[in-house]
């Protein structure tokens, strides 16, 4: 048993090491277009990781995460305008602070809601924030906002890589190795029992929501600088949250590495459709079909197909029952 465990752990460490080396040297071996796709995979993997904190570990379906992505994008976009001229890296903590503050303010009342009520409240919040971004002058409204161009794909690839790695390692440590993770999993599985054990469930949920929002905002900031142009639809549209949700469900809800797997598969499908069919809406019905297939045939996500993948199928069912 022990040697089997050690062997499994050794295989895991070895696979992680090989994966890291490949990711580190990848830019030297692929063309700029492919590198851009992999950079996208890293960004979506990080976003899925962030959503998984609330959806997978706390068991609350948020449809409002695009708001935090947009907050990060707009904080960086606005602060980097020529008249302010704040360096990109300095805008990152500010974006996180704003997103965490907004999440704490919104989370206080909404995280007392359960099931569909919470999902609807977060969706309404994101829609409201997008409308605000449309009417404000400072955001450029529907005309959008241009950022200073920094045409260095290597920079964005490595920035996304480092931030995504930190997000995953931080999440793994926090949710699998500390009291906070136990609190979160306890309230996800049985909130009254968690309270009966002394867990202040509302506070823990708000902390998780704020943490998730902070990570989402960070990727929004990097994305804005990467694409150099943002508008309300592109950084606050509901498709952003939808993709996060589907990526997590596809990879494995409430698992550490499942969201990375789901993000990789889904983003590659997305880019393949885009390259073959152009800018079409066919991707949306495909997303719907994928959700239906996962619910029916793969409730534990792709991660459950790997050796040592999670057994049991309670999480997806629990989440769906909440809706």
């Amino acid at each position: 048993m022990v040697s089997k465990l050690s062997r499994s752990r050794f295989s895991g460490v070895l696979a992680s090491f090989v994966g890291l080396v490949i990711l580190a040297v990848l830019p030297g071996f692929v063309d700029p277009y492919s590198l851009r796709i992999v950079t996208g995979v890293l960004m979506w993997a990080g976003l899925a990781c962030a959503w998984n904190i609330v959806g997978g570990y706390a068991g609350y379906i948020s449809f409002g995460h695009s708001a935090f992505f947009g907050i990060g994008a707009y904080v960086t976009g606005i602060l980097m305008q020529r008249d302010l001229g704040i360096p990109f890296l300095a805008t990152l903590p500010l974006g996180i602070l704003v997103a965490v503050g907004v999440a704490a303010a919104i989370g206080g009342p909404t995280m007392r809601l359960r099931g569909a009520y919470f999902a609807i409240a977060t969706w309404a919040f994101a829609e409201m924030l997008m409308q605000v971004a449309i009417i404000l002058d400072i955001t450029g409204g529907t005309a959008g906002l241009s950022l200073p161009a920094y045409l260095n794909e290597f920079f964005f690839y490595y920035t996304m890589l480092v931030v995504a790695l930190l997000a995953y390692l931080g999440t793994w440590y926090l949710l699998e190795r500390t009291r906070f993770g136990f609190r979160l999993k306890a309230l996800r599985d049985h909130e009254p029992a968690a309270e009966a054990m002394g867990i202040h469930t509302t506070l823990v949920k708000v902390q998780a929501f704020a943490l998730s929002a902070g990570i989402t905002s960070l990727f929004g900031s990097i994305y804005a600088y990467w694409v150099t142009f943002i508008d309300p639809r592109s950084v606050m549209g509901p498709e952003i949250t939808d993709q996060m949700v589907v990526m997590v469900l596809l990879g494995g809800l409430g698992t550490v590495w499942g969201p990375a797997l789901g993000a990789t598969v889904l983003w590659l499908i997305n880019r393949y459709i885009w390259s073959e069919l152009g800018d079409t809406t066919i991707y949306l019905p495909i997303l719907g079909l994928i959700i239906a297939m996962i619910v029916l045939f793969l409730p534990n996500g792709l991660i459950s197909l790997l050796p040592g993948g999670r057994r049991g199928g309670g999480l997806m069912g629990r989440l769906l029952r909440k809706l």
Partner: peptide
Amino acid sequence: PSLFDNISVHDNLMAAAVES
């Protein structure tokens, strides 16, 4: 019984000790 269904028996006990 109001257990934390999706975590192990060991982790159920650990979860009970987080606040005490």
